[in-house]
């Protein structure tokens, strides 16, 4: 059989999804094969069918041969539309291209890569995790189209993606063909940061020596820059300024030695609250380009200030059990 034809659209397709065959992904790519595509009439399709029944009854009643012709042509058109709608999804390849981690409660964007390999353009293909946030695109023949599909996150941690639904009603909007895709991709959700009022705690453990030079270091001379109000007087190149060519500040660089320790023990409340607070501190520390380390009950991250460190710290918190 080409595809399963359900006689009715039930009030909620999602209820039935547990019974449907699902397109599983191998090596991240799921190929929609004929058996995984389901098709039902849309409500316009039902309206159309009702109209056809009306035409058929009229043709019988008035013995209209050409009435039969219109009825049968339109019925056959609906049938052909079914094949076309089904074909519009057939053999599409769906892969998750990328999904950046987000904080819990934010909307993640799952970038889907839907590839057409059968030398046939596909029109009006929609994909969604949640019907309210569907993304509709055309896919050119032998091309790849990226679908940025929003997904609302609730809890921190590493979550499997919910089942993705791909559907199309092209060309006549009379039929609704869809397929459900499972992808083993796991979305990393960072903890939800606490409100920023806990920021005061930051300095409590901070080992502050300088203020404006914190990340610049002072090990090696590294050139000049124009003087700015607030630069340390000891760093001004007085020799240069004595010649009246303006004020310059000498630049030094070196590994930051001013380390901020973000410690589990400094937080209060239950586990989730503590994680939230730490998350907030990490965000703030990263935003101000400080060097920071993370101390948790059973792990410790060495201080650093790179982007990778930031993500590593957040990941550690996200996966903390």
């Amino acid at each position: 059989m080409l595809s399963k034809i359900w006689p009715f659209t039930f009030w909620k397709i999602s209820y039935w999804q547990q019974w449907f065959r699902v397109a599983k992904s191998a090596n991240n790519v799921a190929i929609l094969n004929p058996r995984q595509i389901y098709i039902v009439p849309t409500r316009w399709g039902l309206l159309y069918a009702t109209m056809l029944i009306g035409l058929l009854i009229g043709s019988i009643n008035y013995s209209l041969s050409l009435g039969y012709y219109v009825t049968f042509l339109l019925a056959s058109l609906g049938n052909i539309a079914m094949l076309h709608t089904w074909r519009n999804l057939l053999h599409l390849q769906i892969a998750v291209s990328n999904a950046s981690p987000v904080f819990a409660g934010d909307t993640a964007t799952i970038v889907l890569k839907i590839s057409e390999t059968k030398n046939r353009p596909r029109y009006v293909v929609a994909a969604y995790f949640n019907r309210q946030a569907e993304v509709i695109n055309d896919i050119k023949a032998n091309d790849v189209q990226l679908f940025d599909i929003p997904l609302t996150t609730i809890k921190r941690g590493l979550h499997s993606l919910p089942r993705l639904t791909i559907y199309t009603e092209f060309p006549l909007s009379l039929l609704h063909a869809w397929a459900v895709v499972d992808n083993p991709f796991q979305l990393l959700v960072y903890p939800k940061p606490a409100e920023s009022i806990y920021q005061n705690n930051l300095s409590a453990d901070a080992d502050v020596q300088g203020s404006s030079q914190l990340t610049k270091g002072d090990d090696d001379f590294n050139g000049h820059k124009n003087y700015q109000v607030g630069d340390s007087p000891s760093r001004v190149d007085w020799k240069a300024s004595s010649r009246g060519i303006g004020m310059y500040t000498k630049l030094y660089s070196g590994a930051g030695i001013h380390t901020l320790w973000l410690d589990w023990l400094d937080t209060t409340g239950d586990i989730e609250t503590r994680i939230s607070q730490l998350t907030r501190w990490i965000i703030d520390a990263h935003a101000t380009q400080q060097t920071y380390g993370l101390r948790l009950p059973d792990t410790e991250l060495a201080p650093n200030n790179t982007e990778a460190h930031y993500h590593q710290a957040l990941t550690t918190l996200a996966l903390l059990s």
């Binding site: 019988i60 009643n61 008035y62 019925a75 539309a81 060309p171």
Partner: peptide, 30 residues
């Protein structure tokens, strides 16, 4: 595309036209 769809619909239409059991009308008074 519309013309294509209709053309593709013709074979089944012909079969229905020939084989769909014809019911002698009228079903009710005209």
């Amino acid at each position: 595309l519309a013309a294509q769809l209709l053309l593709q619909a013709v074979p089944v239409m012909l079969i229905l036209f020939v084989l769909f059991p014809r019911i002698p009308g009228p079903l009710w008074g005209l």
